[in-house]
């Protein structure tokens, strides 16, 4: 526990390298999109960060359920790590998306299902962190956190569906595109390489950050315990 495990160190370095390569592929290697131009390059990281945000979102909901079943505080750490990572990566996704949307949709923001759902996840997770801050007892904090992530994990898909009942203009690059979408395009071979590499790289980065955050949580717990011991 004292020193960083060497596997984690290796993963740190690997994710840095992967990030660098993904950046190169997205900014240099991939061809420029004909209609949208260079701003389309945002797409590679936009989808990859959204993917990580989604991974964190699902992980948080699942670990919330596991915590409620097992009442083991270690799952609370995992859940908190997932929430924090999801919060940060959805934020990056939204910023990147806005950068792209300004020239393509001619607006920074629109109340589309994906945009709204991502921002609602942000708000739910901010509320989650505030909730945790207001509770001292670690068991209760963990229980309330787990209940809230569970409720959030059920509510957000319903929000998504409910806004989907309106029209959407968000492009669907993978899968079927709706006729109302604006800014869609078809990927060429090189674009696909850059895209899937970015997905892969960010998945590794997700695992790396997740691991680091869980380790940090363990250390935090230890420090708290030691502090209590010193006070006694």
């Amino acid at each position: 526990m004292k020193t960083k495990p060497s596997a984690l160190k290796a993963l740190d370095i690997a994710s840095l390298i992967l990030l660098a390569v993904a950046t190169y592929l997205a900014l240099v290697f991939a061809p420029t999109e004909r209609v949208m131009g260079d701003v389309q390059r945002v797409f590679y990281f936009h989808v990859a960060t959204a993917w990580v945000g989604l991974l964190g979102f699902v992980a948080a909901g699942v670990t919330g359920i596991i915590y409620l079943r097992t009442q083991d505080l270690k799952w609370d750490l995992v859940e908190q790590a997932a929430v924090e990572i999801s919060l940060v990566f959805f934020f990056i996704t939204i910023i990147l998306g806005s950068i792209w949307a300004r020239p393509i949709w001619n607006t920074w923001w629109t109340w589309d299902p994906r945009l709204t759902s991502a921002s609602i996840v942000e708000l739910i997770y901010l509320a989650y962190l505030m909730l945790r801050q207001g509770i001292e007892d670690p068991d209760r904090r963990a229980r309330f956190g787990a209940v809230y992530t569970l409720v959030g994990a059920i509510s957000v898909p319903i929000t998504f569906l409910s806004i989907r009942l309106f029209r959407t203009i968000h492009p669907v690059v993978i899968g079927n595109e709706s006729s109302a979408a604006e800014g869609g395009f078809a990927m060429t071979g090189d674009m696909k390489i850059a895209f899937f590499f970015a997905l892969f790289a960010f998945t590794i980065i997700f695992i790396d950050l997740f691991w680091n955050r869980i380790r940090l949580g363990h250390l935090q717990q230890k420090v708290e315990q030691l502090k209590l011991k010193v006070m006694d």
Partner: peptide, 13 residues
């Protein structure tokens, strides 16, 4: 703060 993001679907619908 806890409630509003969760009940958004109800409010929309």
């Amino acid at each position: 703060i806890l409630l509003f993001p969760i009940i958004l679907p109800v409010v929309i619908a």
